[in-house]
């Protein structure tokens, strides 16, 4: 499953920790000898709005942006956000989706309904859909803020890096007191998907 290059699209809701997740992924790639670029938007977009990160790795990366229809892996921190950005996934690409639902303003105020058929619509995009309950895994560790790293753990099955690279990245990136719980979160996330059940192309 060694992939010399790839595009990873992360989507979530402002405040969910997509930034730290993408930092850890970038560090892990860099530590493993890849060229990496990533792009995201700060400011206005962080106030509870949709947030995305484009992460690209390979022997040499030019564009910091992923083209629609070219992402190899989509990691969604919120179910509906997976659907919003599903068009970035390439044919046959994989999705790791957190089953958590966060209501957008129009739904929270009763103007619209949260779509009930998200999973079905995602499955129509790819048969490599992996829905996980990262919130439950994080809550079971009594640290709701580790949802992001649980998802990195689950997504790691689809990336060409050894587990040690992520753990080294976590140790390098985080304050010492947070390393243990995040390494635990990474492993818990990785255990959510068994390697044998991961569909490969």
């Amino acid at each position: 499953m060694t992939v010399p290059k790839g595009d990873v699209f992360l989507a979530g809701v402002g405040g969910q920790g997509t930034l730290l997740a993408s930092e850890v992924l970038c560090d892990a790639f860099l530590l493993s000898g890849f060229d990496v670029k990533k792009s995201e938007v700060h400011g206005m977009a962080q106030r509870g709005g949709s947030v995305t990160t484009h992460l690209r790795f390979g022997p040499k990366v030019f564009s910091p942006l992923i083209e629609p229809g070219k992402a190899d892996l989509l990691i969604a921190f919120e179910k509906m956000e997976a659907l919003r950005f599903a068009h970035y996934l390439r044919t046959g690409g994989a999705m790791v989706v957190n089953a958590q639902e966060i209501l957008p303003p129009s739904v929270a105020t009763g103007q619209e309904r949260y779509p009930r058929d998200v999973a079905e619509r995602l499955r129509a995009v790819t048969d490599r859909l992996h829905m996980v309950d990262a919130l439950a895994a994080a809550l079971s560790m009594r640290e709701v803020r580790t949802v992001n790293i649980v998802l990195v753990g689950a997504a790691s099955h689809f990336l060409p890096l050894p587990e040690a690279a992520y753990e080294e990245a976590l140790s390098a990136r985080l304050q010492e007191k947070f390393v243990a719980v995040n390494v635990q979160a990474f492993r818990a996330g990785r255990a959510l998907l068994q390697p044998l059940t991961v569909k490969r192309h």
């Binding site: 977009a45 106030r47 083209e67 629609p68 229809g69 509906m80 956000e81 659907l83 949260y114």
Partner: peptide
């Protein structure tokens, strides 16, 4: 890259249309 490629070659590059979902503006 897609906008640049399409603009210069003039070829339309087919991509999946974004799925309609409720918007999530900042708040």
């Amino acid at each position: 890259p897609r906008i640049v490629r399409q603009a210069i070659t003039g070829e339309a590059i087919p991509v999946r249309a974004p799925e309609p979902v409720p918007p999530r503006p900042p708040n």
